[in-house]
């Protein structure tokens, strides 16, 4: 019985593979956009213009304080009302990049604040403009500080991507949902789905742990 079901699950490997491809491409694309936007958010949040920083803070708070599922619905249902037609994939990428940018932005802002002020003062003393200080002195150091958290953020993003299955995208979780409709063994089907996520995410978790440990050893 079990072997028969395992055999049937294996018969679904194209669906499973499609799901994995969708999960990975959603996550990678959103990570790329999220990192670029996130750095911009972070620089503004840690910047001198406090009004702008607070306004962005409100925006960020909205997306950090509401469930991701709700945000997916907001992008999927509200943007079309304003006349922007979006495919489910685009909606998913928008929602994911946006939430990634909000979380990465706060990480980057704290990274920038963690760079001692003497660094930018020294850069200013040697005649660098604000932009040059940021680009050549502060950001390179901030990047080192935030990299372990960024890897952790990528894992969160991959896991968040499962939520976009709610708007019908065939990702890994949705693939499991499709399979379980014809193979009535939830433990087996979602065991395999879980294992696939584990294979994707665990190396990243391992890397981020190693990086954190290495950073601690260089500080102490």
């Amino acid at each position: 019985m079990f072997l028969m079901q395992l055999d049937r699950v294996m018969g679904y490997w194209p669906v499973l593979l499609k799901g994995i491809a969708m999960t990975v491409s959603l996550s990678v694309l959103s990570l790329l956009i999220g990192v670029v936007l996130g750095f911009a958010f972070g620089i503004i949040r840690a910047g001198r213009n406090r009004t702008l920083a607070r306004l962005l803070g409100l925006y960020v708070d909205f997306f950090r304080g509401t469930p991701f599922l709700l945000q997916v619905f907001i992008v999927f249902f509200i943007l079309p009302v304003t006349g922007i037609e979006l495919s489910a994939f685009t909606s998913g990428v928008i929602a994911m990049s946006n939430v990634a940018a909000c979380f990465i932005g706060e990480i980057v802002a704290s990274g920038i604040k963690a760079v001692p002020t003497g660094q930018s003062e020294a850069a200013a003393a040697s005649g660098m403009t604000r932009a040059q200080q940021m680009r050549h002195v502060v950001l390179p150091q901030a990047v080192r500080i935030v990299t372990p958290s960024l890897v952790g953020q990528f894992v969160l993003l991959i896991k968040d991507s499962s939520v976009v299955s709610a708007i019908g995208l065939l990702d890994l979780t949705r693939a499991g949902w499709v399979m379980v409709q014809s193979i009535p063994n939830g433990l087996l089907v979602f065991g395999i789905v879980g294992l696939s996520y584990f294979i994707i995410c665990y190396p990243l978790i391992y890397i981020s742990r190693r990086m954190e440990r290495r950073d601690q050893s260089t500080i102490l």
Partner: peptide, 23 residues
């Protein structure tokens, strides 16, 4: 701890939702 951290909550939820009745 590792199994939970490396898989999404939704997959865990479906695992229980479709799996528990089977047990």
């Amino acid at each position: 701890v590792d199994a939970i951290r490396a898989t999404p909550l939704l997959a865990q939820l479906y695992f229980l939702y479709f799996g528990l009745p089977r047990l």
